[in-house]
């Protein structure tokens, strides 16, 4: 009886997988992703990238959750966050994850960049992936900065205030930058709306496809490239050369003497 149910379940599973495979090719795609050969060395170093992805996914999830309560107006922004922190179930956790994973994200992104730099993983043919990575790190920095301002509390507001003031020192276009970021010539409701639009819609919409391109280019060229992935082969090459060299000396030593 159990054997028959098992056979039937397997059959249904197989049929469902086949059905999806014919229509979308998802099974072979998954197989392709899962069984891709990756370097054995540096397994733990290479977790920095996936940790970044994980933290960004956390940002997207908790960000969407926070929007269930957050109100982007000057009068209610602070109050709605206060509500999240004190009244909403697990509000402390959801906002805590959004805040702390953003901080951890900055650290992990920095380490990821350093790892890429010191292993020379940006060299041909991976230059474009480095460029995309730099764009991503800039987007993450601006996201962190704008997220700070959305709180509309003293800390976040003054940080944004200083940011606008720095923007107003941009050569030639400073005053335009300032009025664009302020949404007028004074700080007010338009300023918060702009920060909200940039943090919640504009930058995530840019970030998501760029992460896709980053991953696509990674899969296309693989993680290999660092000499560190050829340690054994290099060692063997060195050994063989040494033997040849000794052989050469031995020959050379023998001939002039005799």
């Amino acid at each position: 009886m159990i054997a028959r149910i098992r056979a039937w379940a397997l059959g249904v599973g197989q049929a469902a997988a086949d059905w999806m495979e014919v229509r979308t090719g998802v099974v072979s795609m998954l197989e392709h992703f899962l069984y891709e050969p990756v370097p054995k060395r540096g397994m733990w170093l290479y977790t920095l990238g996936s940790a970044t992805l994980f933290l960004i996914v956390l940002q997207f999830l908790t960000g969407i959750l926070l929007l269930f309560y957050y109100v982007p107006t000057t009068d209610e922004a602070w109050n709605s966050i206060y509500y999240i922190m004190t009244e909403a179930y697990f509000g402390l956790l959801i906002r805590g994850i959004h805040f702390w994973s953003a901080n951890v994200l900055i650290v992990v992104v920095g380490l990821h960049m350093l790892r890429t730099f010191f292993s020379g993983a940006y060299k041909a043919p991976r230059e474009l992936n480095w460029v995309v990575g730099v764009v991503l790190i800039l987007l993450v920095t601006v996201l962190a900065f704008t997220g700070y301002a959305l709180r509309w509390d003293a800390e976040g507001f003054w940080a944004w205030e200083v940011g606008i003031k720095i923007g107003s020192y941009t050569p030639f276009v400073g005053s335009y930058v300032a009025t664009f970021l302020l949404g007028g010539d004074t700080v007010g409701p338009a300023t918060l709306s702009r920060v909200f639009a940039i943090h919640v819609w504009l930058l995530p919409a840019l970030l998501a496809p760029l992460i896709g391109i980053h991953l696509y280019l990674l899969r296309k060229h693989g993680e290999f490239g660092s000499e560190f992935e050829y340690t054994k082969r290099l060692a063997e090459l060195r050994e063989r050369k040494q033997i040849e060299e000794y052989a050469l000396y031995e020959e050379g030593d023998e001939s002039p003497r005799e």
Binding site: F54, L58, R95, G96, W100, V104, A154, E155, G156
Partner: peptide, 20 residues
Amino acid sequence: LLAIVVALSYLVPAPLTEPM
């Protein structure tokens, strides 16, 4: 990382200073 983040969110709640 998730464990660290969850622990931090309860041990050091995300800051919210006085209104702007």
